[in-house]
Structures are given as structure tokens and as C-alpha cells.
Amino acid sequence: MVETGAFTIFVASIFINNILLANFLGMCSFLAVSKEIKTASGLGMAVIFVMTLTSGLNYLVYQWLLIPTGLEYLQYIAFIVVIAATVQLVEMIIGKVSPVLYYALGIFLPLITVNCAILGVSLFMVIRQYSFLQSLAYGAGSGVGWCLAILAMAGLRQKMKRSRVHPALEGPGITVLIAGVMALAFIGFSGMVAM
């Protein structure tokens, strides 16, 4: 494993290995919540926050709890529990500290528990054997990348409201098609950073 800098990983996970457009993770909420820019940005923020936090926490859990006890095969359960607990905790803390932010993010937080991108980031982190700093950078970068993609999509869909789409293609169909074009555009970024 070549030691790549944390910043390289951060940039690469936004543009080159975008968690949504290259790894197809988090599609469900991406399709459902990308109708309005406002809600999309709320969810995007929540994802960045939770993803960064859980990738760090899951790294610690994996390295300090699962490996010493030889229970690596329980990683799925451990990660899911950590994610669910983190989301719950974040919800409580935000509610206490900043009610304004709570009202902005509130409804999206429970949705995040089952967002596959969050679990995916933790699993990729284990497979690619990242260090703690690299994991944090990867989590944050993936979150920003996901947020970028959903914002772009929400903007396009808002513009698209007035265009006439074939009834069978309307809604999810056309959204997936646009995501394909976006993925194509993001391929242009490959080679931007040497991996």
C-alpha cells in the first residue's frame, strides 16, 4: 500500500472516486431528496458531518476493539451500531447546542443511518487499509463529494420542472440519466491527482 497523503485522498474522494458517481453509494436518498436545493443542502451538510465522524470512530473501533479480539467478521454489526449511535448522539447534541441547525438538519438525521454511503465509507476504509488521518480525510472528502453531487442534481432538477419529459421516464428515470451524464463529466477529473 503506497502511503498517500491525507490531502490527496481528500481531493481524490471528492472528484475522482466520488462516492456517488463512481461507487454508486447513497443513491436511494440521492434520488428521493434531490428535488429542492434547500433540502438537498440540508441533507448534504448532515452527511458530511456524520461521515467524517463515523469514519474516524469506526477506524478506532476496528483497530482497537475488533482486531485485538479477533472479531473482524463482526465489522458490519459493529459499524452499523456505531453509525446509529453517532447519528442519535449528534441529533441530541445539535438539539441542545444549536436549535437552528437542529431544525435545519433534524428530519434528515434519522435518514442517514440507513444511507449506504456512510457504511460504504467505513468498509472501503478497512479494505484500503487507511491510517486514522487518511480515514478522516476520506470520510470528509466523500461527504463533500456526495454533497456536491446532490446539490448539482437538485439545481438541475429545479430547472427541469418546466421541461416535458416522457411520462415513463419522469422522476427517477430522468434523474438516473442525468446522474450518468454527471458521472461522465466527473471522469474528466481523473488524473487530476496522482493516486
Partner: peptide, 22 residues
């Protein structure tokens, strides 16, 4: 080559959704 890359997956999925919904 595009079919093997990520955009190909999106395009195929969109076509399949379109076809079956119609």
C-alpha cells in the same frame, strides 16, 4: 468502454426504468 465504466451503469439503469415503466 463506456459500458464498463460508471456512467454506463447509470445509462443502462435509466433505459431499463424507462422501458419497464412504459
Amino acid at each position: 468502454t463506456i459500458m464498463v465504466m460508471p456512467p454506463g451503469a447509470f445509462f443502462m439503469l435509466a433505459l431499463v426504468i424507462w422501458f419497464f415503466r412504459a
